[in-house]
Structure formats: structure tokens, C-alpha cells
Design a protein around this nucleic acid. Structure first.
Lengths: 90, 90
DNA sequence: ACTATAATTAACAATTAGGTTAAATGTTAA
DNA sequence: TTAACATTTAACCTAATTGTTAATTATAGT
């Protein structure tokens, strides 16, 4: 965990786009995958990276696994950036 | 340029620590390098990645090359995150 | 039990990233 | 111009990342 995992996860454009998709609501893995020109397997690994970083959460419902965005870990990134900009303790 | 370069640059812990060092003021490349357990050449490449992302600026002064942090490009990251969190248009 | 569907995991290939050492570049001073 | 210093660039190696296809796991319906 930590900012390292978060930033690593965010450094890939497909993973950022996945988060963008999930912004509008939960989605099943296959539905997510259909938005990208790569295989389901590839997307599945991207999802596991995002999950490892706690940027998404998964829930199985029958045959489907639904993914939800979890933006709370992004707070740490915001704080890190703010600190870098010297916007803390002011 | 763009958010891709920025996030890629931020995804490495040495590069983040370099930015942290520069927060307190400009530093020569060698001075920066002395803070890390890797070679000067390795730090030099990290510096070029940060420069490519426009997160730092360099100025030669005699034998030395000084590096300054440039936080303005971080604004884009902040906005991207805010947007993801649905904090826009509110 | 069998089949179809949804998704992940495994095994492998190709690319990218980060480290090293050695050579090259730029600058200063003798 | 030669030597010394600061830094970068080149060449190379290894490890990590990303993609593919094929196999596996999990669930639902017949």
C-alpha cells in the first residue's frame, strides 16, 4: 500500500481510463474490458493492479464481478502534492 | 507532455524524493546525487525524466548544473484527481 | 452431470525501466 | 593545452510491465 502503489497504478493510461469509467458507477469486468482494444485477460490484470492499490473494490454477484471506484486513497496523493507545493502548515 | 509524463515521473520513489529535496531550494546535480545510494549516472537519468515531465528546470552555472522544482504541472494532476472524485462542477 | 458464460490465472514473448561502468561533453584554472 | 571536476550520454544487463493465448475457477441453467 501507500503512495507508491497508488502512483504506480495511476501511471498507466488504461488504468486511468478504467477509473474514469467507474466514476459513473459500478461495472462488471467484461463491460469494462469492452471499452478497450486489449484482451479481457489484460484488463483483468489492470484491475488487479488497481485493486492492489485499493483504488477499486470488487464484489461478485452471480457470474459477474462488479468493480467500484474507491477514491479515498487519492487523498494521500493530494496531500503529497500539496506538501510539495509548500501549501501545508500555512 | 501531459498527465501521462507527469504521473510516470512521479511513480518512482527516487524521483519523488528528488522533488522533495528541491522543495527547500535549488541544488546542483552532484549534491542531489549524494543523497541516494545509486550512481550519479543513474540520478542524471532520473533528472532527465523529471525534466522531460517539466517537473524540474535546469540552469548551468559554471561547472554546475542547478535544478529547480516546477510545481505548476502538478495542477493538472490535482484537477484530474478532483474530477475523478466528482468534485468538479459543484 | 453437462454446457455455457464471466472472469482470473499461468506461461510465454516483447517492451520498457532502472541500474552499472566507461566514454564523452562542458567548464574552470594552472 | 592540459588537468581536474561536474555532469551527461552510451552500451550493456537484469528485472518489471504489458500484452497474448490457453488453461482454470466459479456460477447458473438445463
Amino acid at each position: 500500500m501507500g503512495i507508491q502503489n497508488t502512483l504506480k497504478a495511476l501511471s498507466d493510461p488504461i488504468r486511468r481510463e478504467i477509473l474514469n469509467l467507474l466514476k459513473s458507477g459500478r461495472m462488471a469486468a467484461g463491460d469494462i474490458a469492452s471499452h478497450f482494444p486489449v484482451t479481457d485477460a489484460s484488463i483483468s490484470r489492470h484491475l488487479s493492479v488497481l485493486k492492489e492499490a485499493d483504488l477499486i473494490r470488487d464484489t461478485r454477484e452471480g457470474k459477474f464481478i462488479f468493480y467500484d471506484i474507491n477514491t479515498s486513497v487519492l487523498e494521500e496523493v493530494m496531500l503529497w502534492i500539496s506538501d510539495l507545493k509548500g501549501e501545508n502548515g500555512k
